[in-house]
Design a protein around this nucleic acid. Structure first.
Lengths: 350, 350
DNA sequence: ATCACTTTCGGAAACGCTTCCGAAAAGAGT
DNA sequence: ACTCTTTTCGGAAGCGTTTCCGAAAGTGAT
């Protein structure tokens, strides 16, 4: 092999143009052995393996994933199904997932399902994409029909974020998170607390009462406070909607002295209208969010933090464990934590 | 539900368990014909096609992408290479890309390359993932070695966002964007303008002067103003770093009356320290960002908006066109736009 | 030397599809 | 009725791997 490598590199202008058969031939071994050498499997002499590997390297050879998967029976891909990609929380979860999964050598397919049409489309066409080893639904719930569809495909399903109860997965306790927020307000002495509650219009499954809503009711009840329906306004998940909601709250005969928002984004919207109304946060009105969005730190927003990226990585671990047939916990719920900054304070008139 | 389809459904518990051969047999046609029917190709009688399709539907059959691609020679996947997934801009670009690409029937592979290690890893292993039809690099520049690697693989490369000049792609004119920002400050009457400039430490290619930096110099020069090095502070891309930078700016003997930040996130960080110092925005100090992050609207931040998602969709279009062998523009640069909100105002002492 | 293993390796059969090529069938034109 | 086309379809050869199975060669003990 007189300097084979270099010569052959010129020969194959495009990497990956050669096949295992070429490698085998050049290495003077059979196809079977070449395959074994490439895949690190047992039963090939170290010297032989080295030779094959070297030739492969020189030729810039890489196994064809199609052929490999075809022969082996499909492994190595997982689909991420996400309702949003451009919101911090989802991005962070995806980030965590991607890191672990691709570390494990899996390919990560991304599917964005926004509205109902997307959903139908995804669940209809997923089989056509079959041979994903698993799908992870990030922060959304799958409807029964969809669930059945997944079932039929026989793929592993894992949930990351969100409040899905039926698939194994990792999440936070929304009720606990909400509770921390409202309790903080209560602790400061607030007695008239508003809530800006958000629902995702594209996630029709939200029939089940949201944990962050329940938390509000629980907390007020436990504090022996009446709950005034005027004080809670439900909107779509958007900061500007929250700004409007806040306006409504401010126009009440007896406005709240504090508002609990389902997310930081909402809280920021609320703060905008408060400030525009000439009031000050937290002196005149306290605002608390949930999430600990990176910008919460920059805007001095008090919030209850949830580990976003971590939900992704933990979900990946769980997925990996199950893929390997190892046992793994059914649900892992990650802790939340109150982060006090400068958007909450005791009410004025105490 | 005890009708037609159900019988066969019970038969194949797991969708996708049957092969084209089964379908062909059941439909009483050859494998070849079945294949043609499934792939909508020309040359099969409508009745035959319908029959095949019906059987396939009943059996929940879907073609195996591996086998299909193997036989046909790999098509249908594109890799997205992103330096961040959890920042708004990147998420938005990815969103746009995903939407168009998956509409076009392509699978979208996601690769996060954070630090230098990731990069090396990605470019080293990409060939192992070969048979992506294209890779789109979102908002980052590829080094020469990497470029050569891509070259060798013979895949189409497209850039989305970022300032890459060598690959076809879509972006904004950073210099123009920055110029709009600084000019706005100038227009308001500011003469002492600070800049908080950010670099991404993980993107070592940033040797080339950044457009948003140049804009600052250009604008000041054109306005006949001296440029005072004290007034520009360069940091890593992070809001809290920007907060610190702002602190430095405030402690100057002669602090700026306005600061231009390379991004909204930075601007928010700057605003935090201004407020904590007991100063008011925009009364005491004007702040302007770049991006039009969704939260900029909520925080009343003046900024110059760039279309984020759109860069993704346009890049996808460009990619698609090239994949189809159609000509397409080499570079498309999208417009930016000044969005005046409430973080900028004329300087106090004018 | 012989025997019983253990390693190392090659042949060949899948894996599930696409597609070239040619044959049979069905229309068209005269 | 008889060619000449056009349509529809089947046979079969790949596509590039993996892996089962058995053969050959090497190892150590007897």
């Amino acid at each position: 092999m007189d300097t084979v490598g270099t010569a052959s590199i010129h020969f194959s202008a495009v990497a990956g143009r050669s096949s295992l058969a070429d490698i085998a031939r050049l290495a003077g071994v059979s196809l079977a052995t070449a395959s074994r050498a490439m895949s690190n499997s047992y039963g090939v002499a170290p010297a032989t393996r080295a030779r094959v590997l070297r030739i492969a390297e020189e030729l810039d050879y890489v196994v064809s994933p199609e052929a490999s998967r075809l022969a082996r029976g499909a492994v190595g891909r997982v689909a991420l199904v996400v309702p949003h990609v451009d919101r911090w929380f989802f991005g962070a979860v995806i980030g965590g997932l991607e890191a672990e999964l691709s570390d494990a050598g899996l390919d990560v397919l991304l599917y964005h399902v926004g509205d109902a049409d997307d959903r139908r489309d995804f669940f209809h066409r997923l089989p056509a994409r079959r041979k994903v080893d698993a799908v992870v639904v990030v922060a959304f719930e799958v409807a029964d029909a969809e669930r059945e569809r997944l079932e039929r495909m026989g793929v592993l399903v894992v949930a990351a974020g969100g409040q899905d109860e039926v698939y194994p997965g990792v999440r936070i306790d929304d009720r606990e998170a909400g509770r921390r927020a409202v309790d903080h307000l209560l602790f400061l002495g607030h007695r008239r607390i508003g809530m800006i509650s958000a629902v995702d219009p594209d996630q029709p499954v939200a029939a089940r009462p949201h944990g962050r809503d329940q938390a509000y009711h629980d907390a007020l009840r436990d504090a022996g406070l009446p709950i005034d329906d005027e004080l809670v306004v439900t909107i779509e998940w958007s900061g500007v909607a929250a700004a409007d909601a806040m306006a409504a709250l401010l126009s009440l005969r007896s406005p709240p002295t504090a508002v609990y928002c389902h997310s930081d984004e909402l809280a920021l919207g609320a703060i905008r209208t408060i400030r525009r109304a000439g009031l000050r946060v937290p002196e005149d009105l306290s605002v608390i969010g949930v999430d600990d969005h990176p910008l919460a730190e920059l805007t001095d927003l008090t919030t209850v933090a949830q580990p976003a990226r971590d939900q992704g990585v933990r979900a990946a671990h769980l997925l990996l464990a199950r893929l390997r047939g190892q046992g793994s916990p059914q649900h892992v719920v990650l802790p939340t934590r109150l982060v006090i900054r400068r958007s909450t304070a005791p009410p004025r008139e105490v």
